[in-house]
Design a protein around this nucleic acid. Structure first.
Lengths: 200, 200, 200, 200
DNA sequence: TATGAATGAGCTTTCATTCAT
DNA sequence: CATGAATGAAAGCTCATTCAT
């Protein structure tokens, strides 16, 4: 990518980023059309390729940008001294809620990227994928699992929650109902239930 | 579609069906290339279009075929007198395991089809979608939920399990590790844990 | 072509010939589909290519067959002693009328072939084209033009009549109204008018 | 079609129009290949589809353009006060001659379009067809037929002339000899002869 | 910096032709 | 003699990418 991109007005940068996030999130790497992205961003075709050498370059950039942004938000929202499983999950959801306000499609973009099937796209993001993953693992290490019932398999519990949250977000997204607060509330409902079932 | 398809040797029919299931499952409707399908099936381009009028016709066919096949398997594996939540889930997983043996990509194809975003493809399957859904609902109606702890929200429990199973299957699928038995065992692990957590 | 074609039952031969004449006449060489021809003839794809090596071979055959048939009919209908311009034209039209009865599309096929634009097809028929042309010229040589008014340019008169008759036939054909007698009557109307205008 | 087409240099517009007219005129709708059109126009495949959404869109456009252009030329060349049958025909031929100078294949394109057999193409032009037809009818209404001999059937005379002119034009066209003036002269010869034969 | 006209490789689909039965 | 399943080159069309302005 061309670093002059950052000299643009922040508002224009974000218009381009959001346009890319939206179109990639809705259509996947292959299905996303650069024409749709430039229309959504309100810029010309040439400009897109002036800043990003090609489609995969743009994809790489927004993936990179998203992981960094997400990590910043997680770092600031999740209290590093907190040890309660469900409280930490709640704080992570709050972080996502904050992200949604500036970049409505960022979360869904990241989720979809995890399951990207185009070889080119997989290669482009595999390095960064682990970075975000490590961040999540670091947060998980804060958790004191001793308060959970012994029948609980930690890994399974975590996976179930992650898949459930992802699934619910994808559903909201598909329905086109962009109400971050409602999504947040719904997720809390699931956390609440699991809390009751798993606490000693 | 051309009904003469059914006059072909069963092995060849299945080769074509599996090829379509695989490529559609891996790439979605739009990303799937007919070239890839014919290569995978070991037939010529022309032959595909001899039996299926076009790409959407092939998609419609395999979706229809898959729902029917799935329903047959569910009907034969799930005991209609069983009322235990987890036993029924176990039997449903057994049905899926059976399906995987003949059509390794059928489950994943059906899962992905649920979230298909191409208008054409959505139209093609919307009628059949409800049929399979009703079948699942019928099975759920057998369940006696009274044995579960009162903290359990039934809808949330069902959704968590469904999303979890789907997620795990997708993961296996992405890793290309096609070992149906392992997948089955893994899913049983989650069912077992939830059973312990939710039983009175 | 495979000469065994002539060993087939005459009825089957004609079914194949008429099917080819129809499809070629209606769609031109390129637009004609061998699938349509075999469907119209009620035979299999393989059989067509068993008797005629390829599409151009079939085209060549029916063109050849048509010119021969046409010439036979002209020879038997046109009195070689007749010298009157309009009487001869009338007899030629009678010959065409006879042809239409057995091969409804033969005339139109021949007309369309004159204006064929596909290089391959032009090559295939150019030899035979002159044969039919000579036949018409021979008939024209019988004519005693001295009875016509001096203002009449013979070549122009002939060309006008030919183009008019062709045009009217094409029109009937396009309207799908296959009533050879009506076509014959209509053509006679034009001949009658020109007779009155050109006779001394 | 994309209206930006009209922002192109007139020369380029005409190159594209003439290429389409030529290839459609020579091969009919179905036989015309977009590859041939772009080669003839000296542009790329993509550009053609940038301006015209598809083949039928291009066909519709050039038909529309041709009828408008033809009507303008007719309106300016044919004196609306003239009543003499042959003088009016002469003026109409002059209009066509003018058209030929800028768009050598436009006349032949329009003629061939009248007999188009592909359903899609018929639908595309049926609205505009009547517009041009009405224009011709309006001109014919100027004519004072009382100066013709009583043996003349007006409708037949008109049809003969139209078919003859069309036929002669098609012939010139087939021979590839593009000399509009010669064509004009030849047509005048026929008109002159018929004038002598039909005047009281 | 910014535009969008222009390109051409690649995709879906058609159709003349072949060949095992 | 007869079938129609099977083939693959070629057609219409899409879209990431380039480049003159």
């Amino acid at each position: 990518m061309n670093s002059k991109f950052f000299d643009l007005a922040k508002e224009k940068q974000d218009r381009m980023i959001n346009a890319a996030l939206k179109v990639f999130a809705e259509n996947g790497y292959k299905g996303a059309s650069t024409d749709d992205i430039v229309k959504e961003a309100g810029i010309s075709k040439g400009l897109l390729f002036h800043y990003f050498s090609n489609k995969i370059g743009l994809y790489t950039f927004v993936y990179d940008y998203s992981t960094r942004y997400m990590m910043l938000e997680l770092t600031s929202e999740v209290d590093s001294k907190e040890t309660d499983f469900f409280e930490i999950y709640k704080q992570m959801e709050m972080a996502k809620l904050q992200v949604l306000k500036n970049y409505p499609y960022m979360q869904e973009f990241l989720n979809r990227a995890m399951y990207e099937d185009v070889h080119e796209a997989i290669l482009a993001i595999e390095d960064k994928r682990s970075v975000l993953k490590e961040c999540y693992e670091k947060i998980q290490n804060q958790i004191d699992f001793s308060v959970l019932r012994e029948e609980v398999d930690i890994d399974r519990l975590v996976k179930m929650l992650d898949l459930t949250i992802q699934g619910i977000m994808a559903e909201h997204f598909r329905q086109g109902s962009f109400q971050p607060e409602m999504l947040y509330t719904e997720v809390l409902g699931y956390l609440e239930m699991m809390k009751k079932l798993t606490r000693r």
